[in-house]
Every structure is written in C-alpha cells, then in structure tokens.
Amino acid sequence: MTRPLLELRNVSRAFGGLRVNAEVSFTLGEGERVALIGPNGAGKTTLVNVITGDLAPSEGRVVFDGQDITDLSIPARVKAGLVRTFQITRLFTGLTVAENVALAVMQRRGMTWRFFARATFTPGVREEWRRILELLGIADLAARPVTELAYGQQRLLDLAIGLALNPKVLILDEPAAGVPHDEAPKILEAIDRLPREIAVLMIEHDMDLVFKFARRVLVLANGRLIFEGDAGAVTRDEEVRRAYLGSYADGRRRA
C-alpha cells in the first residue's frame, strides 16, 4: 500500500445506548480508491461524520497525514485536505453553480476575508472553477441558480465543491443516491476522472459501481467492519453474505 493518509484506530460512536460504530479500524493510502459498503443503517454515514468532525467519536482516534485530528474542528480538517460530499446534497442553494464552486475555491485560498474584491470573477479563481466544472462536464450550467438543477447535476456540483478544496482524501457518501438509474454511470464517469493523486473513499450500494471503482472494499454491518479486502472476494465472503441476507451477494440489487 501507498503511504497511509487516513487512519482510524478503534473508532466507536454511540447514540445513547445504541452503538452505531464499534471499534472500526482501517487505513486509506495516498491515492487509493476504496469502497465502503454495508446494509442500510450499518453506520456508514455516521462513520463519515466522525471522520470529518461533524461528530466526535465515543472512543478511538482518527489520524490524518500523520497527525491526530480527533479533536480538530471541521474547518481545520478541511484545510488539512480531508474533504467529503453528502448523501443528501448540501449545496449553497441561494447561489449559482459558479458561485458555489468559486466560494470553495476562495475559501481554500484564504480569500474570504476580503470585503471588497469581486467574488466570482477574481482572476485565478475564475479559471479554477471553470476547470473544475469542465472536468465534471457541467460547465454549461455555470450561471444557473442551483435550484434549477436536476438532482443528478446537483450531485455533480456537490462533487465539484469537494474538488475545489484540493483534497488529499475525498469521502463520497453515496454519490449516486437519489439519481435516476440511467444517470448514475455519468456520475461514476466523473468520479473516474478525478485526479489520481486524490485518495477516494466511496460509500456505494450498487455493486456494479463498486467493482468498477475500487479494488479494495470495506464492509460495515451493525457498526462493525466485517470484511476488508479484495473486491473480487467480497461477494464470496460468508459473513458478508449473511449481513446482506443474500440481497447483495449476487452483486445486482440497488438500494
């Protein structure tokens, strides 16, 4: 494996008596592409929330780029290069597509304390948000208000905002969730085009997408990692089959 970037050490998270994540440990290496799968309610999003600082773990440590970030704030983690997207899109709904990405670019560049510059059109910023929108194939939407976008386009914008932050690690929480089935490949294509040096941890239910995307797969069930290994082996694993009660074992069903 490449140099480890993100490392979870025995991370647990409980809500009251309910243990949603239990002693999860894994490592994500530089530029690696890993899929995290698991049945509904397995605790995947909760784990992402713990990694990104939206939730504190009840126990365990999160290490990023050699630094213990367990107690860091959300913005500090983002600045370090740990970036996520959301299972249910979270966009700046009052802004245009270009402004959404420009805002992320300017925030990364430390420009958001400027009170009188022209936001979206600052030289350098403009080139950057355009390049990102072009990479994801939504450059023609730049001037549109976010509220006018189809959901699939919103998901791409969510990804664009993530990219604008120059992540070292990008965590995608079901990037194709809620998107019409025939549009899902378009999103995977966009993910495929992400710069290779970005390590990506993708949560996804569609096993077809998972196989195309990742060589290594993590399986979470009832908050525990029950499988970690080769994508080819995951469907043959007995415990994984049991966790899904066969529903995913044939690698077909979509949630």
Binding site: T52, D54, F92, G94, N100, A102, L103, Q107, I161
Partner: peptide, 17 residues
C-alpha cells in the same frame, strides 16, 4: 458570498473549511 453560503447551508460552509 461566504455569508450567503453560511445562510444557505451552515454545515456545508464549515465543510468547505
């Protein structure tokens, strides 16, 4: 622009750093 972003989605604003 950032203020408007915060208004629209506080968590996302923090998640862009």
């Amino acid at each position: 622009l950032l203020c408007r972003g915060i208004r629209d989605n506080n968590l996302r604003a923090r998640m862009i750093g």
